[in-house]
């Protein structure tokens, strides 16, 4: 089992024929992902990677039964692509595009209210259920099927954590990137809820960073609702106040935003907090053996 995506997902890539999308679609196909086609406006009717190209997402849903989309279009067009996917009835939308204007996402979030779609990202490395379905840009070889759920804001730090886990024999049920932007789709609580309901997930690794209160909200939710252990890490103990550290969301603007404050609060709420980013795998090992 897994959450959000699996071997039955019918995946399309928006911006399908672009260089990045093509490369990552091929990688995903090699990994076993059921990519049923893609969308590039104006190129409908063509064939790419032995799969149909559609002009619109609606065509892809009607003609190919698509229910998952990876958004690979340039950031200035990405919000429109997300709206198109929601309107067409896509259930899971993974937004790889990085650099989407924040207010574009404010409007997207308003539009998605009350609809059935789940958005991951923007600025996410993607979502992967190892050896079943990969929608994203992550290196597939570090993941292995298993029973630990992973959710993170950062892509490369997700790889770091996953590689440490896999090296110790702990595979992943699903690994979810929620992205590093301040206005994003699914948050940590949404993903924890899904992992909590998944009978094949035994524990969750939550990787956050400075800025905002999402991680603490997640820890509060976990304390009230979860029996499965949560292992947490917050990047940015050494980050200075007031400077945006790469991710648009990663900025310390108040005391509660610091990595130290978040980790302390999460620990109080029962999360197994890892202080050293090199010890995430070790801690998962320890917690699962308890």
């Amino acid at each position: 089992m897994s959450v959000f995506i699996n071997k039955d997902s019918r995946v399309i890539y928006q911006g399908f024929t672009g260089q990045h999308a093509s490369f990552h679609a091929e990688e995903a196909i090699k990994h076993g992902t059921n990519i049923v086609g893609g969308v590039t406006p104006g190129k409908g009717g063509a064939t790419h990677l032995e799969r149909p190209v559609f002009d619109t997402v609606s065509d892809a849903v009607i003609q190919a039964g698509a229910n998952v989309s990876g958004i690979f279009v340039p950031p200035q067009f990405a919000a429109d692509a997300i709206l198109e996917a929601i309107e067409a009835g896509i259930e899971t939308i993974v937004v790889i595009a990085d650099g989407i204007p924040v207010q574009d996402m404010v409007r997207v979030k308003r539009y998605v209210l009350g609809q059935d779609a789940v958005i991951f990202g923007p600025n996410t490395a993607g979502v992967i259920t190892p050896e079943e379905c990969k929608v994203g840009i992550m290196p597939a070889n570090i993941y292995q099927p298993g029973r630990v759920g992973v959710v993170s804001r950062s892509g490369t730090l997700n790889y770091e954590a996953v590689a440490q886990m896999t090296a110790r024999g702990h595979g992943q049920s699903t690994s979810v990137g929620i992205g590093g932007d301040p206005i994003n789709g699914a948050n940590f609580v949404d993903v924890l809820r899904a992992f909590n309901e998944d009978p094949d997930t035994d524990a969750v690794v939550l990787i956050g960073e400075i800025g905002g209160a999402q991680e603490v909200d997640a820890a509060e939710w976990a304390q009230a609702n979860m029996d499965k252990p949560v292992i947490g890490f917050i990047a940015g103990v050494s980050a200075p106040v007031g400077r945006r550290m790469g991710h648009a969301g990663a900025i310390i603007s108040g005391e509660a935003d610091t990595a130290e404050a978040k980790m302390n609060r999460m620990e109080e709420l029962g999360v197994h907090v890892v202080r050293n980013p090199a010890e995430i795998g070790k801690t998962v090992d320890k917690v699962l053996k308890q």
Partner: peptide, 21 residues
């Protein structure tokens, strides 16, 4: 470093070992 999260984590690891990024 590549990636903002890993870049911060790298700075954190340096700090944990008594260094300063």
């Amino acid at each position: 470093v590549n990636g903002a999260g890993l870049a911060m984590a790298t700075m954190d690891a340096i700090t944990l070992h008594g260094g300063s990024p």
